[in-house]
Design a protein around this nucleic acid. Structure first.
Lengths: 243, 243
DNA sequence: CGTAAAACTTAGGATATCCTTAACTATTGT
DNA sequence: ACAATAGTTAAGGATATCCTAAGTTTTACG
């Protein structure tokens, strides 16, 4: 596990404050997301997620390693360093606070917050993000149910199952949906499948067939592809917390 | 007045929607500001305002002319086209709405809104800016008193005098102060010299001496350099409009 | 365990933006 | 008319990011 440092004298520890470009922040976010399981992240997966050629990722990843944002052993994948993880979480916090703020304070429809936040997250100062968070009561999650990292980079991700993994009969609460497909979000919104909604799985047809759900009095059915995007947890009575 | 078009086939009329980079928007803002008098704007003045070498401006200005954002005759200065003016006013609107929003909705101190807006103005969508403006009641001016262009690019600039141009005895209302010097803004804030404040010019010492002002019950004095940054208008009784 | 497929890297370059210095040219003021 | 001022072109450099093509390493598995 020989370190990669070459002739370059200094490591240029990321200045922490800012100075990260938009694309770099995007790399870090992607690597964070892909590496949540703790394993090293594969070049190809990063390339896939960012829609870039694998060779581009190799190059960028080397630079990020030189900046101390991640550790990198050629052919073995990358892993964020503490500095890199902090930077990723800071960007994630920006993104999600901005999404929440747009939704709550400016009444943005939830299918459009992602795109706007994607641009603003690279331009907003920490102060702005903190003020936004304070103004809307320090929400714990964004409009799609994704947890918002705290100022000092702590985020608690729940273990969740997706709606298509459960058999008929389960009563669940929607916790989170994926945030980057506006059309899907609009559709889910129409169906009232939003974080917090309580859903009963009425039936589930085999071989990729439709899943029938009851939400309040409505009964509707969705395909497994859509169901896979809806993350849920078992319903626990709010007045009688587990244990 | 031979046109500059070279071998390049198309003129690529600015796509109107966006696609302007941050620096380009800054050029347009600068040219707009310098050209308010209607005259052509000198290369050197643009360079001075943006802290660039004059040669850099020559280069950029040629590109902007090719994009149809301004008209440019070498050695004769530049003038914004309608397209260019609209783009400049859009950026100005963004900047000032954002400043106002930060101040009103997020309680930013007025000396810090400029810097934040300077970054956000290049990233915010028109929709965001419009929502911000609506949320704070479509203000007519930003926190420093600068008028906010309307959605469709109309801005009414008043004729103003600066505080150091007036003789003792005048009663005036502060309309506008320059926005880019945080320390000055903090100081003006401490003195309650903010847009809307009513000020009586008590005395004015000659040869660049101090100007003595009464604001409410306070009497204070400031130097001419500072006074030159404070734009005022004569007080007209609000209940009895002029004429 | 050897080899083909998959994953990954390096080499070499293209592109896009914006900026600079140095040297030259045009305009202007006296 | 000519020096001072203003402005221009030429040539190139800094960043930052991406790509294709070709080669190398790892992995899967017969």
């Amino acid at each position: 596990m020989r370190s990669q440092r070459r002739g370059v004298a200094i490591a240029e520890e990321a200045t922490e404050s800012d100075s990260l470009t938009g694309p770099v922040e995007d790399y870090l976010k992607a690597i964070y997301a892909l590496g949540s399981s703790g394993a090293a992240v594969a070049t190809n997966d990063i390339a896939g997620r960012l829609a870039l050629a694998p060779a581009s990722v190799s190059g960028m990843v080397r630079r990020l390693a030189e900046q101390g944002l991640l550790s990198y052993e050629p052919y073995r994948g990358v892993r964020l360093t503490d500095t890199g993880r902090r930077a990723a979480l800071r960007t994630l916090r920006r993104h999600r606070v901005i999404e929440s703020y747009l939704s709550t304070a400016l009444h943005y429809p939830w299918d459009r917050v992602h795109k706007e936040a994607e641009r603003l997250e690279h331009a907003a100062s920490d102060e702005l993000v903190d003020r936004m968070a304070a103004a809307i009561g320090e929400p714990a999650t964004d409009p799609h149910g994704a947890p918002i990292p705290s100022r000092d980079g702590v985020m608690d991700e729940k273990e969740l199952v997706s709606l298509d993994e459960l058999a008929a009969g389960h009563g669940v609460r929607v916790v989170r949906v994926s945030d980057d497909n506006p059309e899907m979000l609009r559709y889910l919104g129409e169906l009232s499948i939003t974080p917090g909604a309580e859903v009963l799985i009425v039936s589930k047809a085999p071989f990729g067939g439709p899943i029938s759900l009851r939400i309040g009095r409505e009964v509707l059915s969705i395909g497994p592809e859509l169901a896979a995007q809806v993350m849920v947890e078992p319903i626990v009575d709010a007045d009688a917390p587990a244990h």
